[in-house]
């Protein structure tokens, strides 16, 4: 095999031939090593499944080395081996393996393989060194590939969860005829503010509410950006003819708001949602009264 870079392999690699002859033998040694390994997580994966994974990987590895380049795993010859690794990665992630453990599964084949190479080359130290170098690089690439797939899987999961959170985290509740409440929870970034605003305005149209209470009890921190987002929501609701009351301001948050110099002068603010509801009822012309019957019963 001619090496395009002319750096590593000067002689033809004996790895494909070796795999062809000794595949079964290598698999047996590899399995024994894996089963005896201290880092094996017997609770997570059964012997039969581990054997199947190892066997499949070794045969795909064998096939790919027969036809493909040993330096570059981006070619089509490696596609099916990589697909298998991605599969293993996914199932192992579901079983609770860490990316590191999945990568070490690939790397653990190095031991049996190197033993074989040593037997094959015997006293040819220079040949053995070159062969080991190229095989090591190859296995490293495959192991890194599994790590990358594992990370990608995680990113997709995180992304999906973020989207779900966005949908779940912005309910608009009707507290009283004409009064809406918006319990905000978590962090308020631009994307969430946008959704909050849309939901709120839509609900104002639906319920003909005249007052909306933004409750920020569940908002962890309020910085200038969050305050700006809140004020934007207030301004948009006002344009729709609804007044806003901001409630659930914790003492710490009140301190932060003043220290940051955020102007909340034009918005009614209340410490608790109860106070805000009371103010909303008052503004709509309602008054709350205890029934006489109940006070008589208390006597």
């Amino acid at each position: 095999m001619a090496d395009p870079t002319g750096v590593t392999v000067s002689t033809i690699s004996r790895l494909p031939k070796l795999l062809k002859i000794h595949e079964a033998q290598i698999l047996k040694v590899w399995m024994d090593e894996q089963l005896a390994s201290l880092s094996r997580r017997a609770g997570l994966i059964g012997d039969a499944e581990l054997r199947a994974q190892s066997k499949n990987f070794l045969s795909e590895f064998h096939k790919a080395t027969q036809s493909g380049s040993l330096e570059d795993i981006s070619g089509p010859q490696w596609a099916s081996a990589k697909a298998l690794l991605a599969d293993i990665c996914r199932s192992r992630a579901e079983q609770g393996f860490t990316p590191m453990e999945t990568a070490s599964f690939v790397l653990s084949v190095r031991g049996p393989l190197m033993d074989r190479l040593q037997q094959e080359y015997g006293n040819d130290a220079a040949g053995l060194a070159a062969e080991m170098r190229s095989s090591n690089l190859l296995l490293d690439k495959l192991a890194l590939y599994t790590a990358e797939v594992a990370l990608q899987n995680r990113e997709t999961i995180i992304k999906r969860q973020q989207e779900e959170m966005l949908e779940l985290s912005t309910p608009v509740v009707r507290l009283f005829p004409g009064v809406l409440a918006l319990p905000l929870i978590g962090t308020l970034d631009s994307a969430r503010t946008q959704i909050v605003m849309e939901n709120l305005l839509q609900k104002i149209v639906e319920t003909e509410a005249t007052i909306a209470i933004l409750d920020i009890t569940g908002v962890a921190t309020v910085d200038t950006l969050v305050a700006q987002h809140l004020l934007k929501t207030v301004a948009a609701a006002r344009l729709m003819g609804a007044d806003c009351i901001i409630s659930g301001i914790r003492p710490q948050i009140a301190q932060t708001i003043v220290h940051l110099g955020v102007e909340l002068q034009n918005v009614a603010t209340k410490a608790t949602l109860a106070d805000a509801l009371f103010l909303a009822l008052q503004r709509n012309g309602f008054s709350v009264q205890r029934l006489a019957k109940e006070s008589a019963g208390a006597k």
Partner: peptide, 13 residues
């Protein structure tokens, strides 16, 4: 000013 659409309100803000 009455009857502003939500999208219009958001745009103006």
């Amino acid at each position: 000013l009455v009857g502003m659409q939500p999208a219009v309100a958001i745009t103006l803000v």
